[in-house]
């Protein structure tokens, strides 16, 4: 889960590659744990270099 620089948003990235952006962490963890439910489409495409940025 990446806290997107310059914003208050969190980007969750599942091991399946699906991504989800939300404002608070409980929602993102719930989305991650729900895999594969709701992971079909990357509904929020992001610049790939952010993913896994440390």
């Amino acid at each position: 889960m990446v806290w997107l620089p310059g914003s208050d948003q969190l980007l969750g990235r599942c091991h399946c590659g699906a991504e989800h952006v939300a404002e608070e962490p409980v929602e993102v963890w719930e989305w991650l744990l729900a895999h594969p439910v709701g992971h079909g489409t990357a509904d929020h495409p992001q610049t790939p270099e952010l993913v896994g940025a440390r």
């Binding site: 889960m1 969190l10 608070e24 962490p25 993102v28």
Partner: peptide
Amino acid sequence: LSINIDTGGLA
């Protein structure tokens, strides 16, 4: 109430 700083703790 959890905010962004809490992501690690929640995990």
